[in-house]
């Protein structure tokens, strides 16, 4: 069992250069034990390369990393790691069971306790497909198999690269449920995902990578912090009333079904009184939160340091 105080992933200036282009550029970050960590970024930002370096699949150009307290170069640490690649195809001539047995043999000698294959199949919803050949599975089912392979050996750290990209909404729901369950079991999960709503739902912390550099990182609470803005669900508001609110010094914009008004919490009663005076019907008031998508786009607008020494 990994001690709780230990970081699951620590990287220091981890870098990868392909010819003249830096795919990953001096990435330094920490993933804490037991958290779900989301890695966001546009296509080609370096997310998958970053993960592949940690798993020894891609040789870094510079920097270093530790996984579960050991050097990432020590292949033995990978016995505690599960990996779902972004693009993969398991041996099509094998059955689902055979793929899992093959990976189980790679992970651990027979004597070591590992998660039973039926249990893994049940977790990913492939209970009845154990004898099917891989080539007969749909894309979504192959992705479930990929998750099952990642779970072989009962790893404490999981890298899941686009785990729901080929799935229908039901499949996505199942997998998100599984990720929550794995988190509740104390596993650390690093998620690469383009579906920001999923990340918003699952992650404790997120980081944005652009052009190989981390341009934003924070807990979900920090990222989705309430702004000093409130949404007022109102009745119809005339242009004259909008003008009058402006004259009173209120920063107000129209929003679907109401108004978005910039105000601090203590200013709310005054705003409310003004709206009543201007005969605006108010049905509901809710604070406006930043969505992960909003934060993500905001981070991408920040230019990474252009010149690398």
């Amino acid at each position: 069992m990994v001690p709780l105080s230990r970081n699951a992933v620590e990287t220091v200036a981890l870098s990868k250069r392909y010819h003249e282009r830096w795919a990953v550029d001096q990435v330094t970050l920490v993933v804490r034990q037991g958290e779900v960590f989301g890695l966001l970024g546009p296509n080609g930002a370096g997310k998958s390369t970053f993960v592949k370096m940690l798993l020894g699949l891609v040789q870094p150009t510079g920097g270093t990393a530790r996984l579960l307290g050991s050097s990432y170069r020590d292949h033995r640490v990978r016995a505690q790691i599960g990996y779902l690649p972004e693009l993969f195809r398991y041996q099509p001539w094998l059955t689902v069971n055979e793929v899992l047995v093959f990976h189980q043999r790679l992970v651990a000698p027979r004597s070591r306790q590992v998660l039973a294959i039926p249990e893994v199949l049940q977790k990913v919803g492939l209970t009845d497909r154990g004898r099917d050949r891989v080539k007969s599975l749909s894309k979504g089912l192959q992705q479930r198999l990929g998750l099952a392979v990642a779970l072989v050996g009962n790893p404490s750290l999981l890298f899941l690269d686009e785990p729901t990209s080929a799935m229908d909404p039901l499949g996505r729901r199942d997998i998100n449920h599984l990720i929550r369950q794995l988190k509740s079991e104390g596993k650390t999960i690093c998620l690469n995902n383009h579906l920001l709503s999923d990340l918003e739902d699952l992650c404790d912390r997120v980081a944005v990578i652009q052009e190989g550099r981390v341009v934003g990182i924070g807990t979900l609470n920090e990222v989705l912090k309430p702004q000093s803005q409130y949404y007022f669900h109102t009745g119809r508001v005339s242009d004259e009333t909008m003008g009058a609110m402006g004259e009173e010094g209120l920063r107000v914009d129209r929003a679907p079904g109401g108004l978005r008004i910039a105000a601090h919490h203590e200013q709310l009663p005054g705003v409310h009184r003004l709206l009543i005076r201007l005969e605006v019907d108010v049905y509901e008031v809710t604070p406006v939160k930043t969505s992960l998508e909003h934060w993500f786009l905001e981070q991408l607008q920040q230019e990474p340091e252009a010149v690398r020494q």
């Binding site: 292949h75 990996y83 690649p85 693009l87 195809r89 398991y90």
Partner: peptide, 14 residues
Amino acid sequence: ETGTLAAVAARPIV
């Protein structure tokens, strides 16, 4: 190319 090897090489095997 197909990613088959990535899943294998990510295992604790040299």
